[in-house]
Nucleic acid binder design. Structure first.
Lengths: 168, 168
DNA sequence: TTGCTCATGTAACCTGTTACATGATTGG
DNA sequence: CCAATCATGTAACAGGTTACATGAGCAA
């Protein structure tokens, strides 16, 4: 899964600005993808050069101008090629589990604290995802809703697992 | 979490070769970290230049020579600094959830197939992790075992969630 | 008046992936 | 005889992060 395909997928739904795309990634994609301005803006320029998207400048008053991007026919083809390509394995990077692995080199109190913090962090994430789901769900397809629900349930399971192992 | 810290952590347990380090990462770290020869060998050279590890060449017959790396006092200090630094949030990249999100643009049969494949993939992963756990557990601390058990349970929960949502 | 939201962008840096190169031994 | 295991390494490429730059409006 390339960032280019992710951006094409978002623009395939509707025309949007780079700012909108990053917002969507940071909210409803947060549990399975990551992107920032530093990665999304360059990708949009690249896609424009390749003719996969077109840009329309929208002049605004009292606010900065917007670059509204739309997917082209060539972009749709590329996106469909992606959709039919083999699914890549999931990648997980967990600093939390790395700390836990080396737990014997830290005082027990500190490990307990790290576990508590991880539970809190995940409870925060599940709350955010749930509230974002409420915001977006009217405009979501059943598959998109499913995707959010899986995220919510995954976080909840993780929290349960950590609570179960809390206190050895 | 930098790859340098991960390598120092592995060498903190005992002196090992680059090959051993990659093997460990590919087996018992597989559910929370990723690394390959192309990333680990350069990191070892870098750590050696910085004086965080030392290299001892072991001549073997019938096999290529080994470079056995050991952590230095300076390396231990660096690793302990890492252990006491703030825990970074987990990062997840899931091509599977990206496909599911765009499910409406694929025939229903294909989505069902993608879900089945993801369940199979995760069942494969949980089996591998369990068998690796059996191989390594004699030499593992209770925290290291906990780390594996969390991985196994996480995969199982994910499988349950997918099965629950299978067929909408 | 402080900080947030909207809105775009880039340059320097760091890091990782892929593909290549080498080569003997061992197991099925 | 073929594939896997052991064992190291690099060069070219691709990619992302961080920090910076700009700037108006608005709410507390």
């Amino acid at each position: 899964m390339k960032t280019e395909d992710v951006v094409l997928g978002i623009l395939n739904e509707k025309s949007q600005t780079g700012y909108d795309i990053v917002e969507k990634i940071k909210t409803i994609f947060s549990h399975f993808f990551d992107g920032s301005y530093g990665s999304i803006y360059p990708v949009l320029h690249k896609l424009e050069n390749k003719g996969k998207v077109t840009k329309k400048i929208i002049v605004q008053e009292g606010k900065p101008n917007k670059n509204l991007y739309s997917i082209t026919e060539s972009g749709r083809e590329e996106f469909n090629k992606y959709l039919r390509s083999p699914v890549q394995t999931e990648v997980m990077k967990s600093d939390f589990l790395m700390r836990l692995y080396h737990g014997e080199y830290l005082p027990e109190e500190q490990i307990k604290q790290i576990i508590i913090e991880e539970i809190n962090r995940k409870e925060q994430l599940v709350e955010e995802l749930e509230s974002q789901f409420e915001v977006w769900k009217e405009d979501m397809s059943s598959y998109q809703k499913l995707c959010c629900q899986i995220g919510i349930e995954s976080y909840r399971s993780e929290i349960e697992i950590l609570k179960k192992f809390q206190g050895h």
